[in-house]
Design a protein around this nucleic acid. Structure first.
Lengths: 417, 417
DNA sequence: ATAATTAGTTAATTAACTTGACAAAGTCTT
DNA sequence: AAGACTTTGTCAAGTTAATTAACTAATTAT
């Protein structure tokens, strides 16, 4: 028997089984039958039947084709009804904006990705988001009134109750700006604002590389570096929402200055801006590289470095390899401390592939406890640049679907004979 | 509204409220009344009454004196009945063995502490534990048959279902030894084996410096260095039980060799054995220190260094300060990654006090994100060397009390008139 | 065609909880 | 000091989510 340990009294949540069954249906690819639900939840088939009938009448789930097993009556697979409604997932990166439109069954209907600098401040960025949302809706053949909920990700520490960021290192002008309230008023539907790395781990867990893994770390390597933590099946945020902020781990006390004010932070070694800066300095020093073609020197970006590295530019490859090794140090620490089942590397810089990942893996191997490393697989994000926006979709669906699940079914008035 | 997120179907646990109420009573100092329970659990007073009456008839709890508030009928405080029974908590350190006897209300009745080297292997250590248990029982005026459950802590990664350690870095000869089964046979009562740092965080949370804190890290600095993690009110072990094993974080790739085979591990800088080794080498090099008095040089221990430092020995102070700074690096990492509300420093070496702690605090301050550090208090263990054995007591009580709570109350047969 | 097997439903029962009334035990007001 | 007020705890009746056990439904195996 596993030991009990609920040091904190259980938060009062009604209809636990109803909600759990809904999630079981949502997150089981290919559908799941009533018996299987009963088995997995340790409930009677009768109990499952009544709950499922309730969901069927609301239209939130539907019966799919029955998959015939080996013998006996074939089971009817249950799945989320895609036609129930639609949601939007938005990811504000430091330099990009990614938007997805999805139906209730998490199928992507349309995507929009544009370059937007988050340093332009909240008003400009949210206005841009509004324009792009219209574009996305047009592509998906939807209207704003069809949208049930919108999930939003931003690259900074969130106070989720307030729907805003506090003291974000790479979002100047956004501190305490009421992101959720502004968008909710602008669009007239529920909006949920979350940290992008957190949404990344959610997205990869629900429909990416981390399916079924209860202890998962998603590392977003972009302009900033942050980690989203899924621990024992729950997203972990810490006491003030800044858990997983690994971008400002000190890697070398005598390292380069970081935007946060400290010295030798991981981000100052391996963040997108740091990679660009190193390349620019190398060009100015006259080192041999394909990057000299880019003018002015200050316009060289991490993307350029990645592209040059893929074309065989040695300097670019060396810069990325060094960045990978530094990230590896942080990951080794994460693995020793968290002992996760999987680490997923995502974000713009990570799309460089093995040039960054190979030195990273080597550093992890060399620096972490064999006992922990053996249990941990390290992969790249399956959803690529869509990890976080997909997480935002999942989050939006979670809100919508569980709200429906809470609603008591209105039974038609019975006429006494 | 907080977002739902139960990605994994809820584990089937019956009588959640019954168990939660029991824990609420256990972990509320000074008792708690029925109304207050109803309020905290969001249950009706009537529901609480029936559950409480059930517990009262089993004798697991009792009514204490009523505390009169301001007006109205005074509430009756409920508390665990100390006379319900007794448990034992045992902590195997690397060099010491600490045992506590406690009643059901966590009051300590007796303590035994002896020097035992864990390197003597399981048979010798468990035999020694048996001898000392008799001594403890004698002191507490108890007999073995009075003991309900025994909790045991060991300094290595545990497979809790199996009750044994796997690949422990500092427990030669213990790998896969059936600790729980051996002790259970030896003593004839349920035995629970857990990691010592894990028990440390439990002990400090329940009756030490970490009361009421849902996100807590306990760091045990002794021969080995390990952390126990309490996250969102639950002990976190990771996928293979090695979460919190910070002793083998790489601090400096070119640092001294560690017993684990890697180079520059935290333990190789700041563990008890490393501190002793540094002192021995300094003496051999003829450095000025009070430690020259100890002969042979090889017998100098970390305890000697701590004692000399307190007496003003500069070399010893420098060694400890350097160790503190290295531990600070690891703690800064923990704070950035976990964003805990509190970090508690315990274990033998930590009892040195400010000589170790001050440089540690400074390093943490310098190396971690202000946003996270501001939310984190850093303290020393309130229970001192008893953190883990107290945790073992708590764990033993958890098992016993919740077992009683599971039992259906046998209602006396009703006689129909 | 019949037996065996597995899936889902129905009706009766059970257990945990809520609701609302009420008794119990105090303080506060005049 | 008497009554008003307040708060705690209990009781009885009703509600709801679940179980149990029998039953129907739809398929494969013989």
């Amino acid at each position: 028997m596993n030991s009990f340990l609920w040091p904190t009294p259980f938060q009062n949540v009604k209809n636990i089984n109803k909600h759990a069954i809904l999630d079981l249906i949502r997150f089981t690819p290919g559908g799941i039958s009533r018996v299987e639900i009963a088995h997995r939840m340790e409930l009677s088939r009768a109990a499952v039947t009544t709950i499922i009938n309730d969901y069927l009448t609301t239209g939130i789930i539907r019966e799919a084709e029955s998959r015939n097993g080996h013998s006996g009556r074939p089971a009817i697979e249950l799945e989320i009804n895609p036609a129930y409604g639609y949601v939007i997932g938005i990811d504000f990166g430091a330099t990009h904006l990614n938007m997805l439109a999805a139906d209730t069954s998490t199928r992507i209907l349309a995507e929009v990705e544009v370059a937007v600098d988050i340093q332009n401040g909240p008003e400009a960025c949210l206005a841009e988001a509004n324009i792009r949302l219209q574009e996305l809706l047009l592509k998906a053949h939807l209207e704003l009134k069809d949208i049930l909920t919108i999930g939003v990700g931003v690259p900074g520490p969130i106070v989720s109750e307030a729907g805003m960021v506090v003291a974000p290192p790479i979002m100047p002008g956004w501190d305490h700006f009421p992101i959720r309230d502004t968008l909710q008023k602008q669009w007239g539907c529920p909006v949920s604002v979350n940290n992008d790395a957190e949404l990344g781990v959610l997205g990869e867990w629900a429909s990416g590389a981390g399916r079924g893994e209860r202890n998962l770390i998603y590392i977003k390597v972009g302009t900033g570096i942050g980690a989203g933590l899924l621990m024992d099946g729950q997203i972990y945020r810490g006491v003030s929402g800044s858990a997983g902020e690994i971008g400002h781990l000190t890697i070398d006390e005598n390292g380069p200055m970081c935007a946060c004010g400290n010295q030798g932070c991981l981000e100052a070694f391996a963040g997108g801006r740091a990679i660009a800066l190193q390349a620019q300095q190398a060009v100015q020093q006259g080192q041999r590289t394909q990057l000299v073609e880019i003018r002015p020197v200050e316009s060289i970006t991490a993307k350029d470095v990645a592209a040059a590295a893929r074309r065989g530019d040695l300097l670019s490859q060396r810069i990325l390899a060094q960045a990978g090794a530094k990230i590896g140090i942080a990951i080794a620490g994460l693995i020793n401390m968290f002992n996760p089942g999987m680490v997923i590397i995502g974000g713009g810089v990570a799309q460089t592939g093995d040039i960054l990942l190979e030195p990273m893996r080597q550093t992890v191997q060399r620096r972490s406890l064999p006992a922990a490393t053996r249990a941990t697989r390290i992969t790249t994000a399956m959803l690529g640049r869509r990890s976080s926006s997909m997480g935002a979709v999942i989050q939006a669906l979670t809100i919508t679907l569980h709200q429906v699940a809470e609603r008591k079914e209105v039974v038609a008035a019975q006429v006494t004979p």
